[in-house]
Design a protein around this nucleic acid. Structure first.
Lengths: 220, 220
DNA sequence: CTTTTTTGATGCAATTATGATGCAAACGCG
DNA sequence: CGCGTTTGCATCATAATTGCATCAAAAAAG
């Protein structure tokens, strides 16, 4: 599966810039230059996320947002407006997030990832240095050669990836991977982390955060 | 530091459900099963957000809301009532948002995040001169190079930042970071402050206030 | 100016957290 | 059922943290 993103932005250079940045991250992007075009695309294709400029010709962002909401399509607003009012209005209306121009590409991708993470959708094939993780096939390769992970190890890796660059508490990891509450001071999470580290040589990437838990560090 | 959420809900199963969902998202939750308990907790602990059932035993949601408002604690109302009247009354009274039972966990977490974001109590990265603090990753950098802080040091820094430009009493800091009361004239806070100062060269920023405690001075 | 109180600095020891490893129970599969 | 695999527990080894004790320096009080 691929993650498809619709970019509705009337200023072509900005749209191009966004498209470039997100394509680089492995997303499939389509640009629409006015509201009508955007609505049309939303209807015809199935996107995973939508970046909407609030002020669009023909149909404005708020209207499109309502439309997107019906399809359970998450929306991030892009706008020049920085006022708190607009921000609140956007979020109240149901936008998942909000980013104002001008913005850093890193901020944009971070927000996109955050929204997709919240939504539970991550790219199908994940790359992590010389490691490749195919979610569907549940196959992990390191340097081209397959490494067999157990079910729990795989789930754990995926969970850590979904929450990369975040220090996660043990109980959080446990809840996310095993489900339910972790009782007492079980070392289960630690153990599985260790096994993952060993199998994939992640000593420098899957870091322990003392007294907290672990963090998968991915440089972007 | 952690984001703490108080859940005031008399129906235990619902409270548990909410707690589970939010814990999974990385929040630290405390549940109160009646209004009195909730008021007590609000007073003693410092929460970042409060989920209040409108109909609670002993003290009702509206009253608690007023109390929370004094402490600048944002509130999301939870209720079975779906009438427009209640909704309006809740928002009038100053609730940040409103969610009616039954609800999807995803909706709940989305609203929680939206409120925290709106509040600005969740800037992902804090800047302090040449120091960067990434809350999520629990990583602190000074001049681009990472400085490893211990859990307590990190929490302390965040607490001081949250209360920047305010002289804080030792017992206050202790309560905020360690939780619970500081007994006697422990030098624990002093020690940790010193270590923070040293690690981040905060001699001119993290000032001691004689006979009181400490203050983080941030020029903006 | 001296005394007292408060804060800063430092070494150290107790506690606690994490890593490593062996092993046994539970599980899955033919 | 029987086998290999997976999973999590118990244990020991190592590392990090935290708070205390002590002494030095600074600030306030008398």
């Amino acid at each position: 599966m691929v993650t498809r993103i619709l970019i509705a932005e009337d200023e072509k250079p900005i749209a191009e810039l966004i498209k470039l940045a997100l394509t680089k991250e492995g997303y499939f992007c389509t640009a629409a230059y006015d509201g009508e075009e955007a609505a049309d695309l939303i209807e015809r294709e199935s996107f995973d996320l939508c970046l909407l400029d609030i002020m669009l010709p023909k149909i404005d962002g708020y209207e499109l947002l309502q439309y997107a909401a019906c399809l359970d399509l998450p929306v991030i607003f892009i706008t020049a407006k920085t006022g708190v009012e607009d921000r609140v209005r956007g979020l109240r209306a149901g936008a998942e997030d909000y980013i104002s121009k001008p913005f850093e590409c890193s901020e944009l991708t971070a927000r996109v990832e955050a929204v997709l993470r919240r939504r539970g959708s991550v790219p199908e094939v994940i790359r992590l240095g010389d490691i490749t993780v195919d979610r569907d096939a549940r196959v992990v390769k390191k340097g081209g050669r397959e490494v067999t992970l157990t079910a729990k190890e795989f789930d754990l890796l995926l969970y850590m990836y979904k929450n990369k660059n975040r220090a996660l508490y043990r109980h959080q990891i446990y809840a996310g991977v095993w489900g339910g509450d972790m009782l007492g001071d079980s070392r289960t999470v630690d153990l599985h982390i260790q096994r993952l580290r060993k199998k994939l040589s992640l000593e420098k990437t899957l870091l322990s955060v003392h007294k907290i838990g672990y963090r998968l560090e991915v440089y972007t």
